[in-house]
Write a protein that binds this DNA or RNA. Structure first.
Lengths: 298, 298
DNA sequence: GTGAAAGCGCTAACAA
DNA sequence: TTGTTAGCGCTTTCAC
């Protein structure tokens, strides 16, 4: 009997099984934009950890839209064991409500009662500001992004660290997290009369670099640009980007582990609901061996 | 009654539904390496088209492994309506067998009886060879990749186009489709005494560029490098890569459309089982306005 | 220990 | 039209 089944290539229907057991063996991973390289690493992290647990990954692109995100969340509720929500666009209350309805782990979103993996970019901002300050910069700009919560976090941190160091800082934008938006951001930064700029993310920073190059602006001698996230491409764009390196893949893996704990409440019933992963500044320079401080810029 | 359901946020269980209807509202998308930027565009294409059809995407990373691929294919058989298989590592017979067991569309894999979306990279190879030939190159190398079928296709096309044009060509490798493998590939190419090289894909090409730069080799003056695929990063790596641009996102969308037809056999019962998408050569140069031909190289 | 039966949440095909 | 029932493929319980 068993032989026959094997020969016919029998595979138990996971759907039928889920009907009785209540578990589906799948988790949803919602990202705002599947096109953004930042999420590649994240997805890679979740995928690796999930497949190690024998869980299927349902990847959903919410297209930076609150309504899409909410709709997918609702329709997924019954078809997955849990959800990982990266850079949610939902409001705090909506997020808390969603978390109450199904096991969910948020990434880069800190709402009371919602399990979360946080990447400490704000903390890293101190490193960026210190780096720029040590190079002699006194007038900075921050090119803000669309993800309100995250951009706000970063801006607050930057402002905080600049204040008291006697550094002037202004916020520009917000800009879309795309290379295309880099042109506008570059123009705005040039216009702002600053000597250095921290970009909301690397995609924007790379776009700025391209535009600045096209306009003949020498980076880093005339203007310093610091990015965030250290995405694929940051290390080899010209000039290689100084950026805040985030443990994005790790974030994905940790999120899956937290979700797994939520699903199978282990011995340690009471466990941490938040994980804070720290970042570090990766300084890169087109000038190679020449210390940047020589030019008073980065 | 309906009001109550709405207020409680009732959502029908797609799993229970699939049990009776036989359709699951999900399709699997299997890629060899979720980390490879080439597949980002592809995944983006499938995701967009699938979500437009209200179908969920099950993204699976087969980790370049035949056994993983086969295993996932088997376990997915009962839980999805169909499958899209990108750059399958399966043998021809295994692929044909899989296609007989469930609706499946292959991408970049041409096996009789298996519906497929093919990107005409071999055709594009003619453009690359012609381009290099027109710049005066007479000794080429091809840095081969791991995906046997695709690499073979490209090599055959290159060899074919070189023969008769009096161009010497040799195959090197195979190399992994990663930046890391670029170091070995660059060394091999330098060692081969050629003046130009076509890399199996852009990831490898970018890695070669990095290594060549580190060794002080001037690209394109001392050695020309042409990539394949035009992935994210190719346009802004130093120097910007001349590469064969593939309509990858479109391939993803077309694959979904073909699968949708397989699932819901429309009026036009007999439809094409193969789609051939063509590529074009995107010439980029670090030398800006200076015609490359001036240097006799690309 | 092995085997039969109930039921998971839905949709289908039925009867009223 | 509306209301009822059987059964999709499994797991779990309960009787044997």
């Amino acid at each position: 009997v068993l032989d026959a089944a094997r020969e016919l290539g029998y595979v138990p229907s996971s759907h039928a099984r889920s009907l009785t057991t209540g578990r589906t063996g799948a988790v949803g991973v919602l990202v705002p934009d599947i096109t953004n390289p930042y999420y590649f690493e994240l997805i890679r992290g979740t995928q690796h950890q999930l497949s190690a647990l024998g869980i299927l990954q349902l990847l959903v692109d919410t297209e930076e839209s609150v309504s899409h995100e909410a709709a997918h969340l609702a329709s997924l509720r019954k078809s997955v064991d849990g959800v990982i929500l990266a850079a949610s666009r939902l409001g705090d209350d909506q997020l808390a409500e969603a978390a109450a309805q199904l096991p969910l782990v948020a990434i880069n979103r800190d709402v009371p009662g919602v399990p979360a993996v946080l990447i400490d970019t704000p903390g890293g901002m101190r490193l960026a500001v210190e780096h720029l300050a040590s190079l002699g910069h006194r007038r900075l700009a921050f090119a803000a992004g669309l993800s309100a919560w995250q951009s706000r976090q970063r801006w607050d941190a930057i402002e905080d660290h600049c204040r008291g160091r006697g550094i002037e800082v202004q916020q520009l934008g917000p800009f879309a997290p795309t290379r295309e938006a880099g042109a506008g951001a570059a123009a705005a930064v040039l216009n702002a009369g600053v000597t250095a700029c921290i970009a909301y993310n690397d995609l924007l920073a790379i776009g700025m670099l391209e535009h600045l190059h096209a306009r003949g602006v020498d980076v880093p001698r005339s203007l310093s640009v610091v990015g965030c996230d250290d995405i694929f491409g940051s290390s080899f764009c010209p000039p290689p980007l100084t950026t805040l390196t985030s443990p994005t893949e790790q974030a994905g893996r940790v999120a899956v582990k937290m979700l797994a704990e939520l699903l199978a409440p282990s011995d340690a019933e009471v466990h941490a609901k938040r994980e804070l992963l720290s970042t570090h500044l990766t300084v890169r320079s087109s000038t190679g061996e020449v210390p940047l401080v020589t030019h008073g810029r980065s």
